[in-house]
Design a protein around this nucleic acid. Sequence first.
DNA 1: AGACGGATTGCCT
DNA 2: GGCAATCCGTCTA
Length: 186
Amino acid sequence: MPPNFDDNPVAVARELLGWTLLVAGVGGVIVETEAYDADDPASHSFSGRTARNAAMFGPSGHAYVYLSYGLHWCLNFVCREAGHGAAVLVRALQPTHGLDVMRARRGVEALRLLASGPGRVGQALGIDRSFDGLPLSRPPFEWIAPPCAAAAAHIACGPRIGITKAAALPWRFGMAGSPFLSRRLP
DNA sequence: AGACGGATTGCCT
DNA sequence: GGCAATCCGTCTA
């Protein structure tokens, strides 16, 4: 049972925290996300549809994958209804499943370094261009719901990272105090 | 056809 | 805390 993606990206970004995301059996608990909306200058969808961001304008509940800085594959979830260009970026996981696979892919041992950062998440999960546009409700994706009401009480938010436009919006969300965040939250 | 910049990471001091 | 690496997508001609 996957989470509900038919909502605005800020709501989806918050609701995703605490869910366990597995890709081919490898993954962990989502502890950090960022929201990107259609009329958001920092969003890849802001300047309209192109070949790269086409998945963002497709149906919700699908993956949008892009290459960052020429070498990092980043995983996003399309949300709202089709055609809006809204998505949520997965920024960090607490590794729980397939630790050895992730260690091999990442080339590091420490749990803390396996998936704390969007590029690390992509590498740890084996994400690449071929995942762009795939539905999140079917294999290789698999979801485990968070323990009831556990996540909501511990969510913190702050400005998004690495962007220059709309930098003031507090659209980065994380589980407060988690050691697996890519950076501290206020 | 060619230039330019980026939703980052890792290694440096 | 600072900065180089790296290469695809987009824009301009």
